[in-house]
């Protein structure tokens, strides 16, 4: 870490812009093999190969979904039980107060609701969204990351990052442009 502090100017990283996904994946693979770890690709559509090139990691979204489903299910059933048996037991057509088969539809819907909302908010939280500011947007051509260009950003936080060396390294992959990303 100290080394990176000595060498890095106040930049977030170096942003290389590629015209095709093939070039981007190639560069990402190269950078990973060369030992860079703190980097990110920015693409206009999901590119699994880019994630794999950088070393994809498992994500915790499905686990959050399961927890949400269980909470929703238990919450739904408990509400029904408490309402129908404890707080307001009323005889409707001779049905038992604790009519568990009749409680299933609502329990099911609550489980789905809990799971979905947990998944969505969990995903947003893991991704740090909503995110009012991110340095990559300081890169002038970055608006095209949501349109037709493919970007690789090696961050200055990476221990191997040296502004000049890294720039030279990225040059080998023939990006259409390399820019410094200020904070």
């Amino acid at each position: 870490m100290t080394a990176s502090h000595l060498t890095s100017s106040p930049v977030y990283g170096l942003m290389a812009e590629f015209e095709t996904p093939t070039d981007l994946v190639h560069a990402a693979k190269g950078a990973f093999e060369a030992g860079y770890r703190k980097m990110d690709t920015y693409t206009p559509y999901p590119l699994e190969e880019a994630a794999e090139a950088i070393g994809a990691h498992h994500n915790r979204v499905p686990l959050i979904c399961l927890i949400g489903a269980i909470l929703g299910m238990c919450g739904g059933y408990s509400l029904e039980y408490w309402v129908s048996v404890v707080n307001y037991p009323i005889n409707v057509g001779g049905k038992p107060f604790h009519a568990w088969p009749a409680f299933i539809p609502v329990t099911f819907e609550c489980a789905i609701l809990g799971a979905s909302l947990a998944t969505v908010f969990g995903m947003l939280a893991l991704n740090g969204l909503p995110q009012p500011y991110h340095p990559v947007f300081n890169s002038p051509n970055f608006v095209r990351a949501s349109r037709d260009r493919f970007f690789l950003c090696i961050e200055s936080q990476d221990p191997k990052f040296r502004l000049d060396d890294t720039r030279r390294f990225l040059q080998d992959f023939h990006p259409s442009e390399i820019t410094e990303v200020p904070y």
Binding site: Y42, P44, A51, V61, T119, V120, N127, P130
Partner: peptide, 25 residues
């Protein structure tokens, strides 16, 4: 757009979320 920047980590979680939601829907 919540500050979406299209990084591969975001996309990976996003795609899993879409699949999970589809499985729930």
């Amino acid at each position: 757009s919540l500050g979406w920047n299209g990084s591969h980590r975001t996309w990976a979680r996003y795609e899993i979320t879409s699949l999970v939601l589809a499985g729930l829907a």
